[in-house]
Design a protein around this nucleic acid. Structure first.
Lengths: 263, 263
DNA sequence: AACGATTTGTTCGTATGTATC
DNA sequence: TGATACATACGAACAAATCGT
């Protein structure tokens, strides 16, 4: 009797889900039925106790509650696998690699028109090794694959990139750069991204991310956050990109050394 | 008035924590005080509403409640950064790389004695491209860094590796292989891991993982899961490793191309 | 050691709103 | 439209942990 009632109920339901006794998409018993099931000798457990148990399952991401319908066991979706490439060849830039990878998997990518802003953000400025108070250009884009919201990306450029050439102001325009940002920097501004460093983080989504990715308020899904700093030849950072992917529909792949091809 | 009361309270407290107005270790106001603070015109918010707000903060890992004492702001832990190496050189094997990296950061690594089992697991067998019903050797290890539980790792080997040489049975012994598993395979069995493929997943922890990583039931933390298949020269998989890291204390770093050194 | 005050934990109840069928 | 089920908000009682007197 160590565990409180609501946790015992949660654990029991949890076990049924893990064992497959309750399969994805199936509704749990209604609150009233659960109150009866876990009450002893014909008595009923309190409604709130049952609800506390269900809250626990929801917070574990095992079930989803739908108002007016019931509580349902969640299913796992088929994840999109992004292959992290390791050698940035000049003709094989990030965006292109990503797109061809998606096409290889027969999926359709749809990028939103970027939202462009000029910002004063000291944490970003530090990443780009600029002076305190410096301004940065931010380009924010949403990506959908087969209509499903897939990733949110914000790229920051130092403001002084605009001095590098007459075409640089295009960075300020809210139009997609079709050829890919890295290719654009190289062909129009003569800026070559010769390498990058990623920091990979996993965390829970923010409220805004929940909204875009159509995650219910209550469902707990992990998020990948990639923070990529791109460097040019002289070792100076030229862009800082933060990309967020919901982990329920995204996985990443990494190869090293000699590995047989995938299929 | 879009957001419900309990979330407005949670967001307000959350903001105070993020801004540093409430610093780590400090107690929040007591439930009674919060009921007064967020009630209008001398009225009090319901105790349960305040408690719902605090529950939200607890689930985000921002605060911790201690019975009889109060609710306290948690501090963020300094994450351990693992650099994902991309070129497996013969003398520079995985384990060694990892350990020197830890030492570079001035941390102390403590690996448990491995738990070794012989298993019949079809999903693993498929990864190792063995026939259905084949047996695999599993070696399970726990890793702590500076006393804090840091990762759980299980490595699977095909059972027929035991035929490769007289020393192979050491894989069945519950002793750490000090030189690192990959080095052991090479020097004692002549098996060279020439490459690997990782699949990187983010998800929520299981009950067992919560227990080992000392995560409270109420805190929501994401987990990294790395699934690494190692291949030998002829392209056959020789090991399959699953490693789980809690994302609140682990990050990963990845470099490509020419990048300035870290500091 | 004993007690009371304070604080959080758990369980019960009620009421009202909203979404779905 | 009514019935059902979940979401939010409130109130109350008792338990358990902690701390100071």
């Amino acid at each position: 009797m160590a565990d409180p009632m609501y946790r015992r109920i949660a654990d029991d339901l949890s076990r049924q889900i893990e064992s497959g006794e309750l399969s994805p998409g199936m509704p749990l018993k209604s609150e009233v039925e659960l109150r009866e099931e876990y009450g002893k000798d014909g008595t009923m457990v309190s409604r709130n106790t049952v609800r506390d148990a269900i809250k626990l399952l929801v917070s574990r991401g095992q079930v989803e509650t739908r108002p007016g319908q019931g509580t349902f066991v969640l299913r796992k979706v088929q994840p999109f696998i992004t292959r992290l490439t390791l050698d940035p060849k000049p003709g094989d830039v990030e965006d292109t690699v990503f797109k061809s990878e998606a096409e290889r998997q027969g999926r359709e990518i749809d990028d939103s028109r970027p939202r462009v802003e000029v910002q004063l953000a000291d944490d970003i400025v530090a990443r780009l090794e600029l002076g305190k108070g410096a301004q940065v250009i931010s380009r924010h884009q949403q990506r959908r694959i087969d209509g499903t919201p897939w990733s949110l990306q914000t790229t920051f450029y130092p403001m002084d990139l605009l001095q590098r050439g007459p075409d640089a102001t295009r960075l300020l325009e809210a139009t997609s750069i079709e050829e890919g940002a890295i290719g654009y920097l190289r062909t129009h501004l003569g800026i070559d991204q010769v390498g990058w460093r990623d920091t990979i983080i996993a965390r829970l989504p923010t409220a805004q991310e929940r909204a875009f990715f159509e995650l219910s308020d209550k469902v707990q899904v992990a998020m990948f956050e990639f923070r990529r700093t791109g460097y040019e030849e002289n070792g100076k950072p030229i862009r800082f990109t933060v990309t967020v992917y919901p982990a329920d529909r995204n996985q990443f792949e990494l190869q090293a050394g000699r590995v047989p091809s995938n299929e």
